[in-house]
């Protein structure tokens, strides 16, 4: 089955074999965290396979307001390396990897979980691993395991590092294509939705010429508490600072909390606008994390 035109990570459900292509680590961590958060909230067993250490995975989730501690303790969640699961050392065999997944699905059933979610960072396939040419066969095997199951798999590919031929060869085995909803992107500025915690992410340089794409109305429309992630924002001018501050005040006035994450230089600009003491608004710099 070919991947559809695109889905939100929050829409994934049983039998979904999703292909997430990401362009930067922050995007990967955000979408993965949302996938995990929703799985845990649904009572599913969740596995996160990546090069990130278990402690690093916990820290990344905690940074996004997700506490996986209780789920780890009761065996509902696992954060582990791909080595020893999908591959053995520097050797990969598609049949063995698909067999491992089928075994995990069966184990989750025995443990009483209503379903399974697996997030797999495919970066291991960029390393010198024998059998990596079996990657398409592995993706096909996943699709077979998931058929009729209550499991979902999120395969994560770095679109800057995987060559287009490889991406094209595996895309057809996925049922869903997932990427962050992007409101605006050009060489200087990228504005996209953030999923965990909910809000928007603004990266690059933002000046008055981009005030239309700023899409701050989206943060108001999203509902609930909002995070504006500006940690990768290198510059914001006076007019756009005012727009962000104004949106934050509007949201806070509606008894919703607003968290502005930004570099200390940008935080200083918001402090000059008097945001530091406004109830419901928190300005957080990397130093505060």
């Amino acid at each position: 089955m070919a991947a559809d035109a695109g889905a939100q990570v929050t829409e994934l459900t049983d039998e979904d074999h999703a292909c997430l292509t990401f362009g930067e680590p922050e995007e990967l961590a955000d979408l993965t965290a949302a996938f995990i958060r929703d799985g845990l909230a649904g009572g599913l067993k969740v596995m996160w396979l990546s090069d990130t250490s278990a402690a690093g995975a916990v820290a990344e989730l905690a940074r996004r307001g997700i506490d996986p501690g209780p789920a780890l303790e009761r065996g509902q969640m696992t954060a582990a390396a791909c080595d020893g699961r999908l591959l053995s050392g520097q050797a990969f065999r598609a049949r063995d990897a698909a067999g491992w997944l089928a075994g995990q699905l069966e184990a989750s059933r025995r443990e009483g979980f209503p379903g399974l979610r697996v997030a797999v960072d495919m970066s291991w396939a960029l390393r010198p691993v024998t059998g990596v040419e079996e990657l398409p066969a592995f993706e096909e095997g996943i699709a077979a395991v998931l058929a009729g199951s209550t499991a979902a798999v999120l395969c994560q590919y770095d679109r800057e590092k995987f060559d287009p031929v490889t991406l094209a060869s595996v895309a057809g085995f996925h049922t869903r294509s997932v990427a962050a909803a992007t409101y605006y992107a050009d060489p200087l500025l990228r504005i996209c939705r953030q999923y965990a915690p909910p809000g928007i992410r603004i990266a690059g340089e933002l000046d008055y010429q981009a005030e239309q794409p700023l899409a701050l109305a989206e943060t108001v429309r999203l509902g609930g508490d909002i995070t504006v992630n500006m940690t990768a924002l290198a510059f914001i001018d006076a007019r756009c600072s005012l727009m962000v501050a104004d949106a934050a005040r509007t949201i806070a006035a509606a008894s919703r909390r607003v968290r502005l994450r930004c570099p200390s230089e940008v935080a200083a600009a918001f402090a000059r606008l008097g945001l530091a003491g406004v109830p419901g608004i928190t300005v957080v710099t990397d130093d505060d994390r």
């Binding site: 000046d207 510059f235 001018d237 006076a238 200390s264 230089e265 200083a268």
Partner: peptide, 14 residues
Amino acid sequence: SRQRVYDVTAVVHE
């Protein structure tokens, strides 16, 4: 400093 470099950049831009 890094903060003052940002301030200079902001002033020049404005």
